[in-house]
Write a protein that binds this DNA or RNA. Structure first.
Lengths: 231, 231
DNA sequence: CGTATACGTCTACACTGTAGACCCATGGGT
DNA sequence: ACCCATGGGTCTACAGTGTAGACGTATACG
């Protein structure tokens, strides 16, 4: 009963993987399923709904495949982050959709809950947890999207020629960093390092930390007000 | 000489602001400019090039409007971040484009340079600067995009009904956080808090920091190898 | 004068998403 | 035996989309 919808979604996934998202038209998809374009609308309200269904399928297939709940909080966070990156590596077209559609599917909520639990276990005070969840997920999805859509490096022009557009005097930072900019980046290592930094940030939030403050004399604590519990 | 192109780009900006990005067709734009669709192609290679030109114009108009270079590094970072968010607040459609098109325009490079300089001045060791720049810009753009495309909250369903899809036993994190999830979030305050956290992360990278380590016994330092300077 | 250059128009093509009407097999219920 | 609801599929048609190609025209410069 109704396995047809999943067939269609999977066909759409394959098609997008092979020929890119912009090649995913209702007609092309119908062709691949071996059916008339309009037949798809029996199983999918819209093209938008089709896309939603596709990311839903991705999330359910790859995110909460966690058999191990015995790991430490930071390992669980890491696993989730890497799973997310793996998805957008396998399906680069999906990255943008993760941003456009709010995380409203059950599996997405489940993923959020995993992060909540990890933060709580890390000792982050309850009122801070939602903010940190958003911070983490935003960064992870942002990194994955940047990588998938080529915002990080190579592009068509290497950093050298990119810089060439402007006189060196306009770009003191670039000239100062000089050779460091030209080496190829190992994005996996960088992702790891970033996650490690974020982990540090979480443990910082776990102890009340107010003394680490910035060098610039600013006094904001980085915490939103949580003096009074909500009614 | 060629002021026509800017006229067209500005008309496109206005149109996208008023009626959204999906209403920006070559025909509609041509109408607004008072011209035939094909006339646009004299000034713009593609529709893609049109979009690129639009974000270029946004960046050049709003990002490096910095008259004050006398501020401390963290204030300059803050200013840049807030400018970015302001852009995507005024032009929500632009958020996705920031991710899709690599930062290749001169103004984008200039923005990157500003971040480089700030990090250097903060005392971050040279080899770490590019990574931290990517981390920061990724987060800032990610936050702006999330906000602009409704990934953060309200959406159509409030958190209560969202949670309702799943049994509470499946979402221990949500139930534990309970009331904190239902209050409206002040995204401006949250952004500020996030930036403050990131600032802390930067000063952490500035001193060699290796002792803060995670609670879980993991020993990664978060730094990529920078023992040997590149040739 | 001639000619190049910038700008614009018209027509046409191949595609897109999708509304509306119609068709046909299956399986119960009466 | 009938009827008819339901799930699946087809055909046609419409309004839009981006854009290639050929053709026009007006100004500026040799």
């Amino acid at each position: 009963m109704g396995g047809r919808r999943e067939e269609i979604l999977d066909a759409a996934l394959d098609l997008a993987d092979e020929r890119g998202l912009e090649a995913l038209s209702m007609r092309a998809l119908a062709d691949r399923v071996g059916v008339t374009p309009m037949a798809l609308y029996r199983h999918v309200k819209d093209k938008a709904a089709l896309l939603d269904g596709m990311v839903g399928r991705l999330l359910s297939a790859l995110l909460p495949s966690d058999t191990a709940a015995e790991q430490a909080w930071d390992e669980r966070l890491n696993a989730l982050a890497h799973a997310c990156r793996k998805v957008t590596q396998r399906h680069p077209w999906a990255a943008h959709l993760l941003f456009s559609r709010p995380a409203v599917t059950p599996d997405a909520v489940r993923a959020v809950d995993i992060i909540y639990l990890a933060l709580i276990e890390a000792g982050v005070p309850d009122p801070e947890v939602p903010r940190l969840e958003r911070l983490i997920s935003t960064f992870v999805i942002g990194f994955a999207t940047s990588e998938a859509s080529g915002r990080f490096a190579p592009g068509v022009l290497d950093p050298r020629s990119r810089r060439g557009q402007l006189p060196d005097s306009e770009l003191p930072g670039h000239t100062r960093l000089g050779p460091w900019l030209d080496l190829p980046v190992d994005l996996t290592a960088e992702f790891e390092a970033d996650l490690s930094d974020i982990r540090r940030l979480v443990v910082g939030a776990a102890r009340g930390r107010g003394e680490v403050g910035t060098a610039g004399g600013r006094t904001t604590t980085g915490a939103v007000d949580h003096s009074a519990p909500p009614r």
